[in-house]
Amino acid sequence: MTKRLLLPYGLVGPGLLAALALVALPLLLTLSLSFLPFTYADGIGDGFTMANYVEIATDGYYQEIFLRTFLLALIVTGVSILIGAPEAYILARLSPFMRAIAFVVVLGPLLISVVVRTLGWTILLGNEGVINRVLLSIGLISEPIRLMYTFTGMAIALVHVLVPFVVLAVWTSLQKLDPATEQAAESLGAGPLTTLTRIVLPQVLPGVLSGGLIVFALASSAFATPAIIGGRRLKVVSTTIYDEFLNYLNWPLGAALALVLLVIVLVISVGVSRFVERRYKQAFQ
């Protein structure tokens, strides 16, 4: 009998050990690292100091970076929901053949490296890039708009990278929706718009929010796209961590930055999903 009781632990044990050794332990080591002192002359020292956190909290330079990062994440999330949710709704109404093609186009980029996708945006967004050339040639603008190395450029590219997650999440919850509920609303006298806002939207809202949450978490910690499109001057938290670690070798400060980022993202994620769960507990389980 004890053999049966121990079986699940035996099965889950190896994976769990790997997760403990490669996730939990490194995070603890990073936590301890963030409390170590650092000077450019002597490198990482011994002891315990809050200096790294104090620096992040008080230095306007870091505050600006955090502010920029979360503003970017918020905007990217908002835009992704705004265009991703309707697209999922349209996908559900396409003919099977058109839908299969749309799937490859909309979801396929998830399988392509972020570096490749961001490269595409650098070609599109540059001053000599495709977007500016097209706008110039049709006379919409008289001189190139700066998009590379701007906040707008980062936001556009990040929406491209992350919007499939919203489409996917909303698509999944649309699949669970009983199409007869739309017919029922119609038979009770509701027009298409009322049916959409009163019947369809509330039922897929949990999907919209969970998709948005994924986008927010990934956008606030995205590295490659802000690094390439934003460049050296327009820093976000993750590119700052990269610089601290690999350029300035100030690991303790980098670790502190990473942990602050982690805590903020986790608090927001858990907070929102708790809210969603409580809000929809009775209707959806």
Binding site: V23, L29, S238, A258
Partner: peptide, 8 residues
């Protein structure tokens, strides 16, 4: 976040 896991 991948960046956190990376430095950890």
């Amino acid at each position: 976040p991948a960046i956190v896991l990376g430095i950890a």
